[in-house]
Amino acid sequence: SEEEEEEWRRAKERGEEIIILGILWKPNDEEAERRIKEALRRV
Score class of each variant (00 low, 15 high):
residue 40 L to Q: 02
residue 37 K to G: 07
residue 22 G to D: 04
residue 42 R to Y: 11
residue 30 E to P: 10
residue 42 R to C: 09
residue 7 E to Q: 15
residue 13 E to I: 09
residue 32 A to M: 04
residue 2 E to M: 14
residue 41 R to M: 11
residue 15 G to D: 03
residue 25 W to E: 00
residue 6 E to L: 11
residue 9 R to V: 10
residue 2 E to K: 13
residue 39 A to F: 06
residue 10 R to P: 03
residue 2 E to H: 15
residue 16 E to S: 09
residue 28 N to Y: 12
residue 41 R to Y: 10
residue 37 K to F: 12
residue 8 W to H: 02
residue 24 L to I: 08
residue 3 E to K: 15
residue 7 E to D: 12
residue 8 W to T: 02
residue 10 R to F: 07
residue 38 E to K: 03
residue 24 L to Y: 10
residue 10 R to K: 12
residue 26 K to V: 13
residue 18 I to H: 02
residue 34 R to P: 00
residue 23 I to L: 07
residue 39 A to V: 06
residue 12 K to V: 10
residue 19 I to W: 15
residue 5 E to G: 05
residue 10 R to I: 12
residue 3 E to G: 13
residue 23 I to T: 03
residue 7 E to Y: 11
residue 13 E to V: 08
residue 12 K to G: 02
residue 7 E to W: 15
residue 2 E to R: 14
residue 15 G to N: 08
residue 11 A to E: 02
residue 1 S to W: 15
residue 23 I to P: 00
residue 27 P to L: 02
residue 5 E to Y: 14
residue 13 E to P: 01
residue 1 S to G: 15
residue 25 W to G: 01
residue 18 I to W: 07
residue 28 N to S: 07
residue 24 L to R: 08
residue 33 E to S: 07
residue 38 E to W: 02
residue 3 E to T: 14
residue 27 P to F: 04
residue 11 A to V: 08
residue 42 R to K: 14
residue 40 L to P: 00
residue 17 E to I: 11
residue 35 R to G: 05
residue 8 W to F: 14
residue 7 E to V: 13
residue 8 W to E: 03
residue 36 I to P: 00
residue 32 A to K: 01
residue 22 G to C: 14
residue 36 I to S: 00
residue 16 E to M: 07
residue 6 E to Y: 12
residue 8 W to K: 02
residue 28 N to I: 01
residue 23 I to R: 00
residue 14 R to L: 10
residue 30 E to N: 09
residue 17 E to D: 06
residue 3 E to Q: 13
residue 23 I to D: 00
residue 41 R to N: 14
residue 43 V to M: 14
residue 24 L to Q: 05
residue 37 K to V: 14
residue 31 E to Q: 07
residue 1 S to D: 12
residue 34 R to C: 08
residue 42 R to H: 13
residue 28 N to G: 15
residue 22 G to E: 04
residue 20 I to G: 00
residue 2 E to G: 14
residue 17 E to S: 12
residue 15 G to P: 01
residue 33 E to T: 10
residue 29 D to H: 05
residue 39 A to L: 09
residue 14 R to W: 07
residue 12 K to W: 14
residue 41 R to H: 13
residue 15 G to C: 15
residue 33 E to K: 02
residue 29 D to F: 04
residue 39 A to G: 04
residue 38 E to Q: 06
residue 38 E to L: 04
residue 3 E to F: 14
residue 10 R to E: 08
residue 20 I to E: 00
residue 25 W to Q: 00
residue 17 E to M: 10
residue 23 I to Y: 02
residue 14 R to V: 08
residue 28 N to R: 06
residue 7 E to H: 12
residue 40 L to K: 01
residue 3 E to M: 13
residue 12 K to A: 08
residue 14 R to I: 09
residue 2 E to I: 14
residue 27 P to R: 01
residue 40 L to A: 02
residue 11 A to W: 07
residue 35 R to I: 08
residue 11 A to R: 06
residue 23 I to N: 00
residue 13 E to Y: 06
residue 21 L to M: 13
residue 21 L to S: 04
residue 3 E to D: 15
residue 6 E to R: 07
residue 18 I to A: 08
residue 2 E to F: 15
residue 30 E to V: 11
residue 6 E to C: 02
residue 41 R to T: 09
residue 9 R to F: 09
residue 36 I to R: 01
residue 40 L to E: 02
residue 19 I to G: 01
residue 12 K to T: 08
residue 10 R to N: 10
residue 16 E to V: 11
residue 1 S to C: 11
residue 4 E to V: 15
residue 18 I to Q: 03
residue 42 R to A: 14
residue 40 L to M: 07
residue 33 E to V: 04
residue 1 S to M: 15
residue 32 A to T: 07
residue 9 R to L: 14
residue 41 R to L: 13
residue 17 E to W: 13
residue 27 P to T: 01
residue 14 R to Q: 08
residue 9 R to E: 13
residue 23 I to A: 01
residue 8 W to M: 05
residue 1 S to H: 15
residue 31 E to S: 06
residue 38 E to Y: 00
residue 3 E to L: 13
residue 17 E to Q: 11
residue 24 L to S: 05
residue 7 E to S: 14
residue 30 E to C: 00
residue 33 E to Y: 05
residue 35 R to P: 00
residue 18 I to L: 04
residue 27 P to Q: 03
residue 27 P to D: 04
residue 29 D to K: 01
residue 11 A to T: 03
residue 35 R to D: 06
residue 23 I to F: 04
residue 34 R to M: 10
residue 23 I to V: 07
residue 9 R to K: 10
residue 26 K to H: 04
residue 9 R to T: 09
residue 18 I to K: 07
residue 25 W to R: 00
residue 8 W to G: 02
residue 29 D to S: 05
residue 1 S to R: 12
residue 31 E to W: 06
residue 36 I to D: 02
residue 15 G to R: 05
residue 17 E to T: 12
residue 17 E to G: 06
residue 29 D to M: 02
residue 4 E to A: 15
residue 41 R to V: 09
residue 20 I to A: 01
residue 26 K to A: 09
residue 16 E to G: 05
residue 20 I to D: 00
residue 26 K to I: 12
residue 36 I to M: 03
residue 43 V to C: 08
residue 1 S to L: 15
residue 7 E to P: 04
residue 10 R to W: 08
residue 16 E to Q: 10
residue 34 R to K: 11
residue 38 E to N: 05
residue 41 R to D: 13
residue 4 E to D: 14
residue 43 V to A: 13
residue 30 E to I: 12
residue 42 R to D: 11
residue 26 K to F: 04
residue 18 I to E: 02
residue 20 I to W: 05
residue 8 W to V: 04
residue 20 I to R: 01
residue 20 I to M: 03
residue 20 I to S: 00
residue 10 R to T: 08
residue 11 A to Q: 03
residue 22 G to I: 11
residue 17 E to F: 07
residue 15 G to Q: 08
residue 14 R to T: 08
residue 11 A to L: 09
residue 2 E to S: 15
residue 36 I to T: 02
residue 4 E to P: 15
residue 12 K to R: 09
residue 18 I to P: 00
residue 5 E to W: 14
residue 22 G to V: 10
residue 30 E to A: 12
residue 42 R to V: 13
residue 34 R to V: 09
residue 34 R to E: 14
residue 25 W to P: 00
residue 9 R to I: 11
residue 16 E to H: 11
residue 13 E to F: 06
residue 24 L to F: 08
residue 21 L to D: 01
residue 21 L to I: 06
residue 10 R to Q: 10
residue 32 A to H: 00
residue 13 E to D: 10
residue 13 E to R: 06
residue 43 V to F: 14
residue 28 N to H: 09
residue 27 P to C: 05
residue 34 R to W: 12
residue 32 A to G: 02
residue 11 A to G: 03
residue 25 W to F: 04
residue 14 R to F: 08
residue 42 R to G: 13
residue 26 K to D: 03
residue 18 I to S: 03
residue 21 L to A: 09
residue 24 L to G: 01
residue 16 E to T: 09
residue 33 E to D: 09
residue 7 E to F: 15
residue 6 E to G: 07
residue 40 L to V: 03
residue 25 W to I: 01
residue 37 K to A: 11
residue 21 L to E: 02
residue 34 R to T: 11
residue 32 A to R: 02
residue 36 I to A: 01
residue 27 P to Y: 03
residue 42 R to L: 13
residue 22 G to L: 09
residue 43 V to R: 15
residue 42 R to Q: 14
residue 30 E to Q: 11
residue 41 R to G: 10
residue 22 G to Q: 03
residue 11 A to N: 04
residue 26 K to W: 08
residue 34 R to S: 10
residue 1 S to A: 15
residue 36 I to N: 00
residue 19 I to D: 01
residue 34 R to Q: 12
residue 42 R to E: 12
residue 11 A to F: 06
residue 31 E to H: 05
residue 11 A to D: 02
residue 40 L to N: 00
residue 38 E to F: 02
residue 43 V to P: 13
residue 40 L to Y: 02
residue 9 R to C: 00
residue 2 E to T: 15
residue 4 E to F: 15
residue 6 E to Q: 08
residue 35 R to H: 05
residue 12 K to E: 02
residue 10 R to A: 12
residue 8 W to S: 01
residue 14 R to P: 01
residue 22 G to H: 03
residue 30 E to L: 14
residue 16 E to W: 13
residue 31 E to D: 13
residue 39 A to R: 05
residue 32 A to Y: 01
residue 7 E to G: 08
residue 26 K to M: 07
residue 41 R to E: 14
residue 5 E to S: 09
residue 35 R to N: 06
residue 3 E to V: 14
residue 34 R to G: 06
residue 12 K to N: 06
residue 24 L to K: 11
residue 23 I to Q: 00
residue 17 E to R: 07
residue 17 E to V: 12
residue 2 E to Y: 15
residue 9 R to Y: 11
residue 37 K to H: 10
residue 33 E to N: 07
residue 30 E to R: 08
residue 10 R to H: 11
residue 25 W to S: 00
residue 7 E to A: 15
residue 24 L to H: 12
residue 10 R to S: 06
residue 10 R to M: 11
residue 38 E to M: 03
residue 23 I to W: 00
residue 6 E to W: 08
residue 31 E to P: 01
residue 25 W to D: 00
residue 29 D to L: 02
residue 18 I to R: 04
residue 39 A to D: 01
residue 15 G to I: 04
residue 37 K to S: 10
residue 11 A to S: 07
residue 8 W to Y: 07
residue 20 I to T: 01
residue 35 R to E: 08
residue 15 G to S: 07
residue 22 G to R: 00
residue 14 R to Y: 08
residue 25 W to H: 01
residue 36 I to Q: 01
residue 40 L to T: 01
residue 42 R to T: 09
residue 40 L to C: 00
residue 2 E to P: 12
residue 24 L to V: 09
residue 28 N to E: 09
residue 19 I to H: 04
residue 43 V to G: 08
residue 31 E to R: 04
residue 23 I to H: 02
residue 20 I to H: 01
residue 1 S to K: 11
residue 43 V to I: 12
residue 33 E to L: 07
residue 28 N to V: 03
residue 17 E to N: 07
residue 10 R to V: 10
residue 33 E to M: 05
residue 40 L to F: 09
residue 29 D to V: 02
residue 39 A to M: 09
residue 14 R to M: 11
residue 5 E to F: 13
residue 35 R to F: 04
residue 12 K to D: 05
residue 8 W to I: 06
residue 4 E to I: 15
residue 5 E to N: 10
residue 24 L to A: 04
residue 4 E to T: 14
residue 1 S to F: 15
residue 12 K to P: 03
residue 34 R to I: 09
residue 23 I to E: 01
residue 39 A to W: 05
residue 38 E to T: 03
residue 1 S to P: 12
residue 39 A to Y: 06
residue 7 E to N: 15
residue 6 E to D: 11
